[in-house]
């Protein structure tokens, strides 16, 4: 199984707060705060426990085709980061 086949979803307990066009994820019990810029927030918002990482990439590539190469690398990286921080869980 590669990261592309994972179906990530937000970990229970995280609260998303939007500030301007950026998102702060808070987990009051785990005392964790995670700041995401707009692109990071966009990826987070697409992780709904139904789409695979590959499907998220394809969605973003369809909207930003000029950045396909970057998107393929960036999405995998940010999903891994969010999973590593406990904010995303593989469904």
């Amino acid at each position: 199984m590669t990261i592309l086949t994972l179906i990530p979803r937000p970990t229970a307990g995280f609260q998303a707060q939007t500030l301007e066009n950026e998102v702060v994820l808070l987990h009051p019990i785990q005392n964790v705060i995670i700041y995401l810029n707009t692109s990071g927030a966009l990826v987070w918002s697409l992780c709904n426990g139904k789409r695979s990482v590959a499907e998220i990439i394809e969605l973003l590539v369809a909207v930003y085709p000029e950045s396909e190469k970057d998107i393929r690398a960036d999405v995998q990286h940010i999903v891994q980061e969010l999973m590593g921080r406990g904010a995303l869980t593989a469904a």
Partner: peptide, 23 residues
Amino acid sequence: SGAVALSHLPTSWGKPELQAGVL
């Protein structure tokens, strides 16, 4: 994006950034 109340979609792709800390 509306689900997390982003006011608008970015017009171009930017590298996702993450910063983590303790409450």
